[in-house]
Every structure is written in structure tokens, then in C-alpha cells.
Computed example of a mutant assay.
Amino acid sequence: MPRYRLTVNTTAVRRELRAAAARGLLLAAEHVLGESTAVVPLDEAALSRSGTVSVDEPTLTAAISYDTPYAIKQHEELNFQHAPGRTAKYLEGPLNASTAQVRDIVAAQLRRAMR
């Protein structure tokens, strides 16, 4: 009966899977940013244009942020009046609504890396 030997370089596998997970996080965060941009309060579009995404690969953490002096206040103040379709909680709402898509995007990148 023939014998076969399989050697797996687990270090390389882990490195590739971590990179795929980071890529998935970046794509997923960009998806959430796109959804958020559609509902961010809009006056002169400075808040909308300030949206950005970053990923920290060592901790596999993604961040979506808006960088204006009033971004937090616009997000948290529920009593502000906004144009139709625009809202407070412009990041929290889309993030909560996109959990399935975020999961699917990250999973797709991990599957691609395992081919």
C-alpha cells in the first residue's frame, strides 16, 4: 500500500489567512462607509467627504471614521433636523443593518485565500 506524506507550512497558512481577513475587513468597512455616506447629514458635504476606513492587520480591527469637528455631535444628537433621508446615528445604523453583508464579505475573502 503506498504511503504519502503531507507537510503543511502552518506559518504561511496563518499569514495568508490573516491577510485575507484584513482584506475582508477593509472591503466590509468600505461597504459600511458607503451605506453610511448615503444617510450622513448633508449641508455642504464636508462631513460626507471626511469619511474614511482603516484596518489594523495585527489586531484585525477595522475603523470607520468621519473627521470633522462636528461629526460626533451630528451622530449623537437625535433632535437635529436633517434633510429627507439623512439622519443622526449615520454610522451606527448602517453598521447594525449590514452585519450579514460584513460577515459575507469577510468570509468570501477567507474562502478565496483557502483555494
Rank of each mutant, 00 (worst) to 15 (best):
E44F: 13
V8C: 03
Y70G: 05
A97E: 14
A20H: 07
D104T: 02
N79Y: 11
P58Q: 07
G93A: 08
T61C: 00
A63G: 05
R15V: 15
V40S: 11
N79K: 11
R15T: 14
L33M: 04
S54R: 06
S50H: 15
L42N: 04
P41W: 02
G24P: 12
R112K: 12
E30Y: 09
R3K: 14
L6M: 12
A12E: 15
P2Y: 01
I72N: 13
V32N: 02
N79H: 15
T68K: 00
E76N: 12
Y90A: 01
P2T: 04
V32A: 10
V32K: 00
L47G: 13
T61G: 08
N9M: 06
T68Y: 04
V102N: 05
R49S: 13
Q101G: 06
A71E: 10
Q109F: 11
G24K: 01
Y70D: 11
D56C: 01
T11W: 12
N96W: 08
P94Y: 02
A19S: 08
L91D: 07
T99P: 03
E35T: 05
E44M: 13
L60I: 12
E30M: 08
R5A: 09
Y66R: 02
V55G: 00
A97F: 10
P94K: 03
A113C: 04
G24L: 02
A19M: 05
Y4A: 12
G34K: 09
L110T: 03
I64S: 07
L60E: 01
V55L: 04
L42K: 02
R115F: 00
T61R: 14
V39Q: 10
P94A: 01
D67C: 11
V53T: 10
Q74C: 03
Q101Y: 02
L27S: 12
A100H: 12
D43R: 14
L6P: 12
R103Q: 11
A113D: 04
D56R: 02
L33N: 12
G85H: 07
E35N: 05
A29I: 01
A113R: 06
G34E: 05
V53P: 10
L60T: 05
G24Q: 09
T61N: 04
L25H: 12
E77G: 01
A12N: 10
S48W: 08
I72L: 14
G93V: 11
T37L: 15
Y4E: 06
M1S: 15
A12R: 15
E30D: 14
S48K: 11
A88Y: 07
Y90E: 00
N79L: 13
Q109N: 09
I72Q: 08
V32T: 08
L26A: 03
D67P: 09
V53E: 00
H82P: 10
R49Q: 15
L26W: 07
L60N: 03
R86W: 05
T87D: 02
A38I: 03
L27P: 06
A83T: 10
A38V: 05
G93R: 13
E76S: 07
E16K: 11
S48V: 15
P84Y: 02
L17I: 15
A100K: 13
G85A: 03
Q109G: 02
R23I: 02
R23M: 04
E77I: 13
D56T: 12
I64P: 08
D104K: 04
P84L: 00
V13M: 08
Y90P: 06
L78Q: 05
R112P: 00
A19R: 11
K73E: 14
M1T: 14
A45F: 07
T68F: 10
H82C: 07
A38C: 03
M114F: 04
